[in-house]
Design a protein around this nucleic acid. Sequence first.
DNA 1: TCGGGAAATGGTAACCGGTGTCATTCAAAT
DNA 2: ATTTGAATGACACCGGTTACCATTTCCCGA
Lengths: 352, 352
Amino acid sequence: MSKPRAPEDGPADVSRRRPNINDIARLAGVSKKTVSRVINASPFVRAETRERIEAVIAELGYAPDPQARGLAYGRAFLIGLVYDNPNPQYVVNMQLGLLDGMKGSGFELVVHPCDRSSPTFLEDLRSFVERQRLFGVVLTPSVSEDERAATIMAEIGCAYVRVASVSLDQPEHMIETRDRLGGREAAAHLAELGHTRIAFVSGPRSFRSSHERRSGFEEALEERGLHLAKAFAVEGAYTYESGIERGRELLAMSPAPTAIFAGNDEMAAGVLQAARQAGLRVPEDLSVVGFDDFQIASRLWPTLTTVRTPTREIGRLAVERLMGREDDGRDPKSRLPSLVVRESTAPPPCRD
Amino acid sequence: MSKPRAPEDGPADVSRRRPNINDIARLAGVSKKTVSRVINASPFVRAETRERIEAVIAELGYAPDPQARGLAYGRAFLIGLVYDNPNPQYVVNMQLGLLDGMKGSGFELVVHPCDRSSPTFLEDLRSFVERQRLFGVVLTPSVSEDERAATIMAEIGCAYVRVASVSLDQPEHMIETRDRLGGREAAAHLAELGHTRIAFVSGPRSFRSSHERRSGFEEALEERGLHLAKAFAVEGAYTYESGIERGRELLAMSPAPTAIFAGNDEMAAGVLQAARQAGLRVPEDLSVVGFDDFQIASRLWPTLTTVRTPTREIGRLAVERLMGREDDGRDPKSRLPSLVVRESTAPPPCRD
DNA sequence: TCGGGAAATGGTAACCGGTGTCATTCAAAT
DNA sequence: ATTTGAATGACACCGGTTACCATTTCCCGA
């Protein structure tokens, strides 16, 4: 693969080869152990020595080999993103957040989608993490809600952080998205507009967020003297198609709801479609609220009032927690869901 | 971290420790080198010996450590996805395709988004690939169109495959998406419907696909005796916002086009929005065609006629090429763009 | 000024878990 | 008996880290 070096290059020729820790040690006139101390920021190195070594490192553009380091350390400098969320926008935002947090850390991101319904799901996950000796993993919904997945990580000795709507584990392992608050915001908005016949399309039971979004919504309605009728609370699947179907069913009832809160933007898009098919105008005849504020929310017509989830920010937090670099200086509000009002909501139509 | 082992466990206790190649060698009564040969499918092992070793491997559930293997091999068993495409749907589909192809290969996927406009773009890319000693990378548009990026990979000795709309390199380094054909399909469809005043909103010049989609479109129009007027060929940025603006401008012309082909679905969504603002009905007054067939195409209203790009399939091909596992048995048509007709296209309105 | 002990620093060797090179063994072919 | 080539093993090495020990430096009291 590489050209054979001419003999006269001698063993000290560093120019054609990538420098290693021995080269640095030799040029700095210290042992490789001391170089290792500098790399790992050990306090037991005299400032003068450190500077000399750092100068050589900079001069040669040396970077320690992650593989060798990982091998000796017994753990790869890799962080895994484990997800089973089919929403591409979620995945990409989460990835971006993780990469934000990992920037300059020397870690790299390995992605691992999985299928929680597969019979070999847990074994696959275990063998993946174990074989790679991952430093840590970020578990996102709905995998994050599986106790067994977390248990496996603990068993293997792999650091983990679970991103979920509520706390399911010791605080150091949790990043809470507090979806309940988002549900409350949606309820407050619709109540304020004057709606009373309000419906809710939840996500699938297998997602904890489905429950949280709903109970926050219901709770805030009750506080305002409103009530989410049994018939008006239906279960979807977080998919566009399920949004169409549930929307169609809700709009066929009589009296029909004047407002529908969908558990995510995809289903809200489906509800808009169902409304069109039923000949209803949005927002004049029907108000619709989504959840997530992914790109689609602003592409729809009318543009969608929705609850924004700060996915990227959450991702950054998660990975910082994992690496023990958490920066608590940021505004904690930026981690919470917040309402974004667009065109799909308005006061209910006047009663005839 | 791990409990200290009791002395009586002895050095041969494999139960608490993850088995390594030495354990396998000892139990199989061979040298570690021979085990290594089996792992790497070397032909120079007697069938009998191989079976014995494989039995021990299976019994202990042994899996070689990728880090150690990579260190000795001089190359990590990692494949990088390098992208600067801001479209989440593209990224996720590409990732899924790569993972499809890597399944069971022992490789893992490391993602690396980058910003081609950053002044340190090339250095960042080089240091990422070099430090990690990546086995290979898949370069996707528009990074894939940068000669310097490819040159760096060649210099470092990192395998690479470039996914681009046309061939820009030796065939073994290219996966062509042939966007030109997609442009042709769009033109054929609109021409067949009877449109004559046809406009095109291209992507940014920095993407090769912008040019290819356009020239295929134009070429096929000409073949049908139609012509893409200068004023009707405008440049967008592959973004929703640019779709709105260009759409608005085109629809303000007189005579206005009766059909608009947008360079991707995002811009097509923008064009739909512009049409609504102009009080035009789609498809009665205006036909719109997109490109990509990502999720958004079927969420819009009306649903979007568009050119499907088999991104996931392309991803699988790319990574198989990289690993030298290419399977040519599949239908080559599945790699080409193809038209998907939905609701946003119809014959032009009758002339008054 | 000097001895003594703790703290700071550096060196050596073993090890992490594999692979490459080359030598050796052994059976079949010449 | 010699050649040939498949099958296997011995040993160094990839590039770091840890364990452990040796040495140096510094501060203190005598």
